[in-house]
Design a protein around this nucleic acid. Sequence first.
DNA 1: GCATTATTTGAGGATGGACTCAAATACGTC
DNA 2: GACGTATTTGAGTCCATCCTCAAATAATGC
Lengths: 219, 219
Amino acid sequence: MDSNTSRAKRTPLQPLRSAGRQRVEELLAAASDLMAERGYEATTMAEIAARAGAKIGSLYRFFPNKEAVADALVQRHIAILEDEYAALAKRAATLSPEALADILIELLVTLHPRVKSLSALMEARTDKMEIRDRARGHAVAGIAAALRVCAPGLDEALAKDIAAVVLNTMKVLRGMLANDAPTTSGAPDELRRMNRLYLSDRLAPFRRGSDSATDGKTR
Amino acid sequence: MDSNTSRAKRTPLQPLRSAGRQRVEELLAAASDLMAERGYEATTMAEIAARAGAKIGSLYRFFPNKEAVADALVQRHIAILEDEYAALAKRAATLSPEALADILIELLVTLHPRVKSLSALMEARTDKMEIRDRARGHAVAGIAAALRVCAPGLDEALAKDIAAVVLNTMKVLRGMLANDAPTTSGAPDELRRMNRLYLSDRLAPFRRGSDSATDGKTR
DNA sequence: GCATTATTTGAGGATGGACTCAAATACGTC
DNA sequence: GACGTATTTGAGTCCATCCTCAAATAATGC
């Protein structure tokens, strides 16, 4: 009579009092940390409850099963990321490509923990891929818009290609700065340099005052 | 009475006949595929045996436990990666930075499945991190050596920084080319372009015929 | 062919972790 | 303070999965 796979075992049972709402926050925070650290499968419901200072019964009051915890986290992360990217273009109006490159870098570094947690959530769940793809689409669109604000003549498709490259470059920087991925000490600066060089090269022909001095040296 | 954690439950019991050796190959291949697809935790021993066309008892004859399967895979992947990087410098002798950039890119794309499998293996095993770091060290050293063959005056530390950047750039390209990570169609070429641009810029001052024409445009 | 040893098999034990639920407790309202 | 409802608790069930082992089978050497 019900759907088919394992949908909606019962009404999600949302918190109605402030204590409940706070508990949900604590539980989600604990789940986010643990799943980012250890991965989805390796994180147990008992651990989540324990780290949140709750007992397992409380966890199951607000989340029908483990999958629902993951879903809630995904929803939450995606929403925040979409907001950040949507707000990006507004800041990009009067910047040089180099400055934009640096701002993009720093923004994405800030977003690191959230993205890391998100990718851990995707670990063994091919059915959630479309959600991640949607988030990626928002990111690319947001960055591309910022690029076109900075370099008005830029073609839309090319802007998206460049945005995809920059987005992934930032992913790399996040990886470098993460404590668990040691690289040589100068590497993050080198990466920033590459990003500036690239954006400068790609955006130069389309800038407003396009005298194209081509002063290749970034310093 | 025994050690402490879960070491060496009994002698690993290696295959002595050709049938056994082949079975081990099949089992490792199956495990590699499954763990790369689904992750370490989500892959069951029964699945591994089934995909290899064996029964679970055979699996446990050659591997005392699931962890041993992962260890064997890690060993194997690391060894191959080390070989590839060690061989790299020899090919780099007479190349331009741009050509070297392209060769590096293609090499690392080839290595993609292996690296993906490796990172899946690291999923929930912080104790294996040092092994991965060692592999990364070999990769960086190999690429840095190739860079210094191509640009003899290059400082060792800087070469390693640049190598780290290039290595991670290649990781990005692998991600773009993976079927499960859709990006805009022009993105991979844009990434190659960025890599060429960066290496060209960084290596130009140190090249043998260093007239430094600074012909920024990569074409 | 026969003995020996490697390999295969699959039922079952042990364990861990997802999930349940009835009873106890805290909170909010009147 | 009393009532109703939200929340907490944690022992207990269930089941998936890791792993064992004794017996069957196949390969190898003589």
